[in-house]
Amino acid sequence: MPQLSIVHALNQGLHRAMDADSKVLLMGEDIGKLGGVFRVTEGLQKSFGDERVIDSPLAESGIVGTAIGLALYGFRPVVEIQFDGFVFPAFDQIVVQLARMRFRSAGALSLPITIRMPYGGGIGSVEHHSESPEGYFAATPGLRVVTCSNSHDAYWMIQQSIASDDPVIFLEPKRRYWQKSEVNTDSHLNNISALHEARVLTEGSDCTIIGYGPTIATCLQSARLAAEDGVSLEVIDLRSLSPIDMPVLIKSANKTGRVVIVHEASRSGGVGAEIATRLTQECFYKLEAPVMRVTGYDVPYPPSRIEDDYLPDAERILDAVEKCMGY
C-alpha cells in the first residue's frame, strides 16, 4: 500500500472522482496552473483541461453561487476555498441558498456540491489563515460537514463527498497536509465505511477521547503518553461533524464512562457542546464524570507566536483525562 501525504491522497482522490464521472468539475482561485496554494489540485488541469479545472475570478460568493447554477444544470462541482478565513464572502450562498435547496424544493432540486477548504492553525501564518469555522456549518441543517485526519480517509472521503447528492463541506487539516500514511487505493467506494461514520482508532477502557481533523494526531499522542502511566484511552475520529455518528460515541461512552472532546475551534457553541449534551442525555447513568472539552479558547485566533498556547496539546488533554479519572 502506498504511503501518501494528505495532499497527494486528496489529489489522487480528486483524479479518480473526475475519471469516474465526467460531470465532476473543479473551480477555485489558483487551482489550475498553480495547482492550488497547497498543490492539492496539482496536475489536474493538465489531465482534464481548463473546462474541468477552472481558475475562477477572485470572488468566493461568485464561486459558490455559480457552482449552484452549474449543479442545477447537472454538474457536480467541487470548489476550493483557498483558506478557512476566506469562506465568509460565500457564507450567504452556502447557508442561505446551498444548504436549503433540497428542502425548499421538496426534494425536486439537488445540489451535489463539495466545498473543500484547508482549516485550522499551527502553521505560523498571519491573520485569517488559521481559522476553524466548522461550527457555523455544522449548525446549518442541510449541509454535511466532514473532515479527514489521515491520507486513507482523505483519499476516500473526498470521493464519497463528491458522490454524495448533498452539499458537503469538506475540511482539510492543513497543519497535517504533508503527513504521510498508508492509503489502500484498491478498495471501492461501496466497500468502505460510510461518510458519516465515526471510527474508533484505538480501543481503551478508561476514558474516551473524541477528536477530528488536525487534533487526531494530538489525541493519539495523548493515548500513547497515558498508556505509559497505565491509563487506557479510547480515541475516536469523528470524521463527520454533521450529521454526528452518535451510536459509536454512545457505545464508547457507556463502556469507559468518561469522555473528553477535543477541537481547535473556540469552546462556546462548538461541536463539542453538541456532543457533550447528547452524551449526557443518552449515557447519564453510565457516566462517571462530566463530559469535558479541550478546545481553542473563546477568543479570535491569536498572533502565531502564541498559537501553541491556544491550540489543544497532549498536556491539556491529559489534564482533562486526569480530572475525569478523579471523579
Partner: peptide, 21 residues
C-alpha cells in the same frame, strides 16, 4: 506576546467566561 494577552480586548469589558479561560 504574553500568552495571556490573547484574552485581552475580546470585549470592551471583562467577561466571566473569558476570565475563567
Amino acid at each position: 506576546p504574553n500568552p495571556l494577552s490573547m484574552f485581552d480586548h475580546v470585549y470592551s469589558e471583562s467577561d466571566l467566561n473569558i476570565d475563567e479561560q
